[in-house]
């Protein structure tokens, strides 16, 4: 009896520590980024940081083209991954016969496990030339190329999480809808998908998070030209993301130099952007849950 309560005491403490340690690590990482990147704000005038020219070896530290590049490529990736990912999840969970489901789900998850450098390699040798000749662009190394490949990388995340959410919608919801005379499409669109909304949104946000942080593929296929994107046409021009900048330049900087501090500052900005995406997702999910509870009670 006594040993039982003791082990329970220890186990609950361990689980508690594990739970809080994730929060602690995130805070520590952010503190580290601020400590290394903070001096960048003091060393570089704000007017320079908010300028449109990034050329660090001559002291041009304009962050806007990099932030713009990341937002552009991520938005493009979301446009690819969200419709395709959600549609695939709906098909697998609601429509596909049993055997197709058993083949499709593992295959999609294999796609998620592909190393991104491999996709970048395919992108540079096959997809980029195709984009150039089909769309008649000056070069195939564009934000669009990166966005499509990033979309492909994010789709498995979206599908996997959204499909689990759809799967956990109780059978009775569908039966009730069909019994009331709804068609299969009406059942999916008006009942099952709304009921699984918070899970689907989580999948979308995780997918976008994956796209923001992806480095290798974008570095290989987007051309890395630090041009400030203006309008949608920028999607078909080369661009440079924050992640690719950090990866390409971190190796060259001397510890403690201005360039070093600015690269960490970019890291902190990247951290804040993904934090904002996650907070937005949490807020949406939270609001939806309250509404759903109101309706169902």
């Amino acid at each position: 009896m006594k040993t039982g309560t003791w082990s329970e005491f220890i186990l609950t403490r361990l689980i508690k520590i594990a739970g809080y340690s994730a929060v602690l690590f995130v805070i520590l990482i952010f503190v580290f980024l601020l400590r290394e990147g903070g001096p960048g704000v003091l060393e570089v005038p704000l007017t320079t940081l908010f300028s449109a020219r990034w050329y660090p070896i001559e002291g041009f530290y304009g962050l806007l083209p990099l932030i713009g590049g990341t937002l552009l490529v991520t938005a493009g990736a979301a446009l690819v991954a969200v419709p395709l990912g959600v549609a695939t999840a709906v098909y697998i969970a609601e429509i596909a016969p049993r055997w197709a489901r058993e083949v499709l789900k593992p295959l999609v998850e294999v796609l998620g496990g592909l190393p991104s450098v491999l996709l970048g390699f395919l992108g540079i040798l096959i997809f980029a030339p195709l984009v150039r000749s089909v769309l008649d662009l000056p070069t195939g190394l564009t934000a669009f190329t990166g966005a499509v490949l990033l979309g492909a990388i994010s789709i498995p995340t979206v599908v996997s999480v959204a499909e689990d959410a759809l799967d956990s919608v109780p059978r009775t919801y569908r039966d009730a809808a069909l019994a009331l005379g709804a068609t299969e499409w009406q059942t999916i669109w008006r009942v099952t998908v709304p009921a699984a909304r918070s899970g689907i949104l989580t999948g979308i946000m995780l997918g976008i998070g994956r796209a923001i942080g992806e480095t290798m593929t974008v570095m290989m296929v987007t051309g890395n030209a630090p041009v400030l994107p203006k309008g949608l046409a920028a999607l078909f021009h080369p661009t440079r993301t924050m992640t690719a900048t950090i990866a390409a330049e971190m190796g060259e900087v001397a510890n403690g130099s201005t360039h070093y501090h600015v690269l960490f500052l970019i890291g902190a900005v990247l951290f804040l952007i993904s934090l904002a995406v996650n907070l937005a997702a949490a807020a949406v999910v939270f609001r939806q849950r309250k509404r759903a509870e109101r309706i169902l009670s």
């Binding site: 050329y55 001559e58 540079i124 290989m220 030209a225 041009v227 021009h237 440079r240 390409a248």
Partner: peptide, 14 residues
């Protein structure tokens, strides 16, 4: 300076 539109490729292979 290099034109901002210059593509900066990470490798000779690129």
């Amino acid at each position: 300076l290099f034109a901002p539109e210059t593509l900066l490729l990470p490798s000779s292979e690129g």
